[in-house]
Design a protein around this nucleic acid. Sequence first.
DNA 1: TCAGCCGTGACATACCGGTGACACATCTTA
DNA 2: TAAGATGTGTCACCGGTATGTCACGGCTGA
Lengths: 226, 226
Amino acid sequence: MSYRLLIVEDSLELLEAVSDFYREEGAGLWDVVTASDGNDALAKVTEGPFDLILLDIMLPGASGFDICRAARRKSDCPIIFLTALGSEDNILKGYETGCDDYVVKPFSTRHLYAKSLALLKRANKGSDGEELRCGDISLNKKSMIVKVKDKEITINSKEYFLLLYLLENKDSVLSRKNILDHVWGDVLDVNDRVVDNTIRRLRECLGDSSGQIKTVIGRGYRITEA
Amino acid sequence: MSYRLLIVEDSLELLEAVSDFYREEGAGLWDVVTASDGNDALAKVTEGPFDLILLDIMLPGASGFDICRAARRKSDCPIIFLTALGSEDNILKGYETGCDDYVVKPFSTRHLYAKSLALLKRANKGSDGEELRCGDISLNKKSMIVKVKDKEITINSKEYFLLLYLLENKDSVLSRKNILDHVWGDVLDVNDRVVDNTIRRLRECLGDSSGQIKTVIGRGYRITEA
DNA sequence: TCAGCCGTGACATACCGGTGACACATCTTA
DNA sequence: TAAGATGTGTCACCGGTATGTCACGGCTGA
């Protein structure tokens, strides 16, 4: 899966530098589309949906503000302004037209990249929330819904948090003590065996996929893809 | 309904300037909490959920990075670093620890404010329209009218804000504590059970559609399409 | 073969959430 | 202003169940 990225910038040198950086750093993460004048950018924005837009303000043809408004009418994809105009008013105007952020030239491409990732993560959060997957098991942290082979299963609270901890440490062996500390917290007087029992109940809930939770004798438990 | 904002900054002068700006500009939009040292900030972060955190890096006690990590363990609320450290490494380290953005001192408070709003809008994706829908239930934020199957129902204030909060976080499981913090605000001496009771009264109002509010035992409540 | 480790069935209880009732404050209305 | 209605927090009770505990027995490796 890759993200569709639109970069709009009239300086061809900068345009190339930025798009190369995203392509190389991302290693296939980005599907980069570029535009170097306002009208071309407008056409591309209205045409296809993007996951992120980097947008210069001063452009031949339409201005960055126009493009931002056009993009906003279509979708609410994240937009970052790239601007040489560091003046107070221009930046505020950018926010008013609905951008998410701005970067003042000259900027560090590496920073811009980090900012892009953070923004993208934020923009995708609202949709489904974070989903943990491992083999046939999936767990949605937001809705706390657990699915096995895409079929929802009901699961108790302790089993849920145990599964969550296992999934967050996929392929690692977790000792009983470790699990107790993380899932049960600072409860002092609990029997170790409670972990075994909760593992058992969890396995029952998982049905066919219960085999994904491996017992590592003398060490603890581990969850794996198969 | 206001947004819970935490500002962490050891310069009391700056702290006051920023918090005053948010309070005045927002006119009740912000419920501002401040901290001026690392340990205080850590305590506040672990204690209550926030909708936005502004975070200085250089602090007496724990560092901003530590606080950011602690906050991330708890929730995914937007975090903006305020930093005098403009070095490449520090900024990238900030992104790695999971912040959303950074601002280098000295900064324009007005810009920071605009950035905050943009980020908040992004984080609360979907909640900026005035009509919220979920299955047969619809809620109009402007007129405060709630309808079930297109038929208007009367609903009390607390029930309204509870429903609003549920709808703004459709499909998410919300804990009692979380609900208390957001719907009841900083009232300290309220019984957890008041949430249950308000849920009950809300369900009564919703009639046939009451089933859309699910109880997730041991974890909280969630509203779903069906 | 024996000790340690783990799975399993059974059990008991503490906990959790739904519910009815009530107290109190605030608002409405005569 | 008095009386009633309404909104909201609190409490006690209860049924169901989530979860901790225990005992037994099988498996495994030294």
